[in-house]
Simulated assay, not measured.
Amino acid sequence: MTFEEYVQRRGAALVRVARLICRDASLAEDLVQEVLGHAYPRWSKIVRSDDPDMYLRRMLVNANISRWRRRSAREAVGAVPADRPDRADIGADVAERDALWRLIVTLPDRQRATVVLRYYEDLDDARIAEILGCSTSTVRSNAMRAMTTLRARLDLPIRPVGSQS
């Protein structure tokens, strides 16, 4: 597969993942453009790795972390309103998802990347570990910490991961 074919097929998916990881649509496009710019000269090696998606996702995560480290000032994320919309409200689901994403973006970079790759990209722990360059136990630990933080911020009971209740 040529670089151009790959970008045509998977470019929009890379932008979606980048948007969830870095929390900003225009920054996500810039991040993907930067990653693709770095990938182009090495494309023959990347495509031989049998999984260019994993390779480029890892590049996205690393580029976002590098960007975050270079920033001189951090942005402040506002608090999520405590009131929840009425279930009869047509926009209730959208409002709940928006409130949840506002909480997800406050997670540390590795935890946020783990949540995005696990629940949005539907990747297993082994794949996430490859992308993040860590062990599967670190992935599980990051996921557990992220879920505990999210539950606490949503005032939900803290329960063991994997519990059905």
Rank of each mutant, 00 (worst) to 15 (best):
R16G: 05
V17R: 00
V17N: 00
V17M: 11
V17D: 02
V17W: 00
A18E: 02
R19G: 04
R19Y: 09
R19S: 14
C22A: 15
R23I: 11
D24A: 15
D24E: 14
D24H: 14
D24M: 12
A25E: 15
A25V: 12
A25N: 13
S26H: 12
S26F: 06
S26K: 14
L27Y: 04
L27W: 12
L27R: 09
E29P: 00
L31H: 05
L31E: 01
E34I: 04
V35Y: 01
L36W: 00
H38M: 04
H38Y: 06
H38D: 12
A39V: 03
A39F: 02
Y40C: 08
P41W: 03
P41M: 08
P41D: 10
P41S: 07
P41E: 11
R42Q: 10
S44T: 11
S44M: 08
K45L: 13
K45E: 15
K45A: 06
I46M: 01
I46W: 04
V47W: 02
V47S: 11
R48P: 04
R48T: 08
S49E: 13
D50A: 13
D50H: 10
P52L: 02
P52H: 03
P52F: 04
D53S: 13
D53Y: 07
D53E: 09
D53C: 06
M54W: 07
M54N: 04
M54G: 12
M54P: 01
M54D: 03
M54L: 11
Y55N: 02
Y55M: 11
L56R: 01
R57F: 07
R58G: 15
R58K: 10
R58Q: 13
M59V: 02
L60C: 09
L60M: 12
V61D: 04
V61E: 01
V61R: 00
N62L: 08
N62V: 01
A63D: 03
A63N: 01
A63V: 02
N64W: 14
N64H: 14
N64V: 05
I65G: 01
I65P: 00
I65D: 10
I65E: 05
R67V: 09
R67H: 07
R67W: 09
W68M: 10
W68P: 02
W68N: 06
W68T: 08
R69L: 09
R69F: 04
R69Y: 07
R69M: 10
R70C: 02
R71F: 10
R71V: 12
R71Q: 14
R71W: 09
S72T: 09
A73K: 15
A73L: 11
A73E: 13
R74Q: 10
R74I: 10
